[in-house]
């Protein structure tokens, strides 16, 4: 994937670019808003990682608004040292697709970037999700593994749906909390782990191979084979 990184702090930029390249992506880097806007507008990227505060007269929000006014729909992840809720809302209102507060763990950034590109592809309305021998029918809300019906609570269904929609990607606890429960705070305890473990009891325990894998220091991944 081609990713544009607009970030003025050389340490953070270097660390992020290195990590993204290691994960197999192509990274273009710009350290100010003007060059960033030029690159974003003139070339095609799969995702843009955009710092809010940038030197050079054009800050992240301005850049984003300009880009959106030109009908550029490249998914944008906004990075910011400002964690206030209003700032998050401002970032999303300007056309950002996701918002991540500094300091962040690289695994969180990577997971969110990969989730964004998946969303950017626009698969169209799906009625069925299939991962390995696990099938989810979104219309009848039925789940089967190896042809065997599995009963899920509504919340477990939504949790599994989220994991299946992001199959093969790392999904962090925060992403699950936001995506499945629509909560935007950081619980001090491992509430999400408990729910994932319950889901595992139902879709993994009775079967020889697990589908939900724990990724250390990051989150979870749903895929047929071990990562």
């Amino acid at each position: 994937m081609r990713i544009l990184l607009v970030e003025d702090d050389p340490t953070v930029a270097g660390f992020v670019a290195k990590g993204l390249r290691e994960a197999g992506h192509v990274v273009e880097h710009s350290d100010n808003g003007r060059d960033g806007l030029f690159l974003a507008a003139s070339e095609t990227f799969d995702t843009i990682i955009l710092d809010r505060m940038l030197p050079g007269g054009i800050d992240g929000i301005r850049l984003l608004e300009t880009l959106r006014s030109q009908n550029n729909t490249t998914p944008v992840l906004v990075l910011s040292a400002m964690s206030q809720v209003d700032d998050r809302v401002a970032g999303l209102k300007a056309g950002g697709d996701d918002y991540l507060t500094k300091p962040f763990a690289f695994s969180e950034l990577l997971a969110r970037v990969e989730a964004l590109t998946r969303r950017g592809k626009g698969d169209g309305p799906q009625t069925k999700l299939i991962v390995g021998d696990l099938e989810m029918d979104l219309l009848s809300r039925g789940v089967r593994r190896g042809g065997q019906k599995i009963d899920l609570q509504p919340r477990e269904f939504r949790l599994l749906e989220y994991l299946m929609r992001h199959a093969g990607q790392v999904v962090t606890r925060t992403m699950l909390l936001e995506g499945v429960w629509d909560y935007h705070f950081d619980p001090q305890t491992n509430v999400i782990d408990v729910h994932v473990s319950r889901l595992r009891q139902k879709i993994d325990k009775p079967y020889p191979t697990p589908l939900i894998h724990t990724i250390r220091n990051a989150g979870y991944m749903l895929q047929p084979e071990a990562p």
Partner: peptide
Amino acid sequence: VTSVFQALLRIAEIEAGSRRSA
């Protein structure tokens, strides 16, 4: 350390009353 800062900032933000707009 970061999460402590996060929590402190959030409390400060709430106490400042700016969130009443929401």
